[in-house]
Design a protein around this nucleic acid. Structure first.
Lengths: 258, 258
DNA sequence: ATTAACAGTCTCACATACGAGACACCGGAT
DNA sequence: ATCCGGTGTCTCGTATGTGAGACTGTTAAT
């Protein structure tokens, strides 16, 4: 096999190293990295140094081991980025909840997951799985579906390249990309996303996406309620309500994009 | 005071690029990457190519943008690593729950969070926040504390370098590293970790760590119960029970480490 | 004390990866 | 039609990053 042309050894190697570190149960010795990847010792030390500098690896001197650094984890948690969104979203969610009397969330897409940034619980409503900071597989949640539905096909494929991407969680969401695409097609057709006891028994949710100035989905707003409180026929109306607030948030985001 | 010599430009740059991509709200244009980081165009394209190859970036051709790839997210979700753990842990949890009649989980440490891999709910017990796949800040959960307590001081410091590391979630867990260290000290003294309404009102948990062959904490087993069911005086006994099963899992892990 | 194994640092000659810049392409204005 | 601003590709000379290996320091075994 050729494809020799565009090489950048240091770049390749450093990515191999982080990947390797992340597959190890705990921190790994420099030598084992070198052995596993077939790299020269001096190179490994140099690159580990760079990784540590950037926070993608941590060196534990007493153990003489190297582990994955917090920068690597922050690639996916990025709360800094989301904090303004949460600040802008919270008051809007509050009025939304006041108006309709059911609980609501604000969530963002993060890899294949959604992360919940704000939760506003309506009075006399059950506690929800989705506390702030919780992360759930996007394809089973209403806000996740609302967000996924806005993505181009290519990206969807990239996010869920194989069946494995769907597995692991509970048994009940045995999905395929084909299934997901069907679900998202109805989302686009309806103009809103829903989830009916896919997350918690007895609860359903309706969600819409909030777009930023470039049209990209910045967040999702979902309302969750006991499923027998609102007839499915009325979900589109509910979605309409939500969209009103989503648009408001959308407007505020555009203003505040630093 | 410069550490002049040991540079590896491609390595530095590629890390800067992923970091940059992750700070952008949505995907970014190659040109904006070059501009933001002050890098030559050809270099940026080459490195983006490498990132895409490794799955750390995705290229959206129709949008002509580059975004963070799933490999980056998998750095922290590392389910590959955890799947065997879940397989081995599930039957053990089942017998544990049978024996003591309360719900239990298996969780692993992941950056500053714990991720729940297995949940075994006891009959007639309330549903829990911690469904499978859910992620919570480690320092407020029992299993998280059990795991954190086994880490060397240096790593703890590395995980929680500043006050910010603790923030963001709910207001009630306004922690400092000092506080956390105190909590972990009692965990070590008691030989088990506990959590009393720190996650959900009315519920408490007791947890112990499962160590792998190198002594590293591989997972935590926690039992969660209505807090008035079990008197705090009896928590140590409960912890003893759990430890029995933790040791069993520990033994199985050692055998199965591929 | 001696040896050995291993972590981490440093140097230096040479192969080669880097980056300037040219080129091709595409879509939107005019 | 022609221009223009933009993305992505490719080439090629040379500055420079790479990696073999020597060196230091530490721990553990004999």
């Amino acid at each position: 096999m050729k494809t020799l042309r565009p090489a950048a050894p240091a770049a390749h190697q450093i990515l191999s190293i982080v990947t390797f570190l992340s597959t190890q149960r705990g921190p790994a010795a420099a030598a084992s990295v070198a052995a596993a990847l077939g790299l020269p010792r001096s190179t490994v030390y140099r690159l580990l140094g760079v990784l540590v500098e950037h926070g993608y690896a941590i060196h534990y001197p007493e153990a003489q081991r190297y582990g994955v650094g917090i920068a690597a984890f922050e690639l996916s948690s990025g709360f800094t980025r989301q904090e303004p969104l949460a600040r802008l979203g919270a008051p809007i969610l509050a009025t939304l909840v006041d108006k309709i009397g059911e609980s609501a969330h604000l969530a963002v897409l993060n890899g294949r997951d959604v992360v919940y940034l704000v939760e506003e619980r309506a009075p006399h409503r059950p506690a929800l799985i989705t506390d702030v900071g919780v992360r759930l597989p996007s394809h089973v949640t209403a806000s996740g579906r609302a967000l996924l539905a806005t993505l181009p096909a290519a990206q969807l494929r990239a996010l869920f390249p194989n069946a494995e991407a769907f597995t692991v969680r509970t048994a009940r969401d045995a999905y395929s990309l084909r299934d997901l695409r069907a679900v998202l097609a109805t989302v686009r057709a309806n103009g809103f996303a829903a989830e009916d006891e896919d997350v918690t028994e007895g609860l359903a949710s309706v969600a819409v996406a909030v777009r930023d100035h470039s049209g990209w989905p910045a967040a999702g707003i979902a309302v969750t309620f006991p499923r027998d409180h609102i007839d499915p026929e009325r979900w589109p109306d509910l979605a309409g309500e939500i969209r009103h607030y989503a648009d408001e948030l959308s407007r505020r985001i555009r203003g505040a994009t630093a």
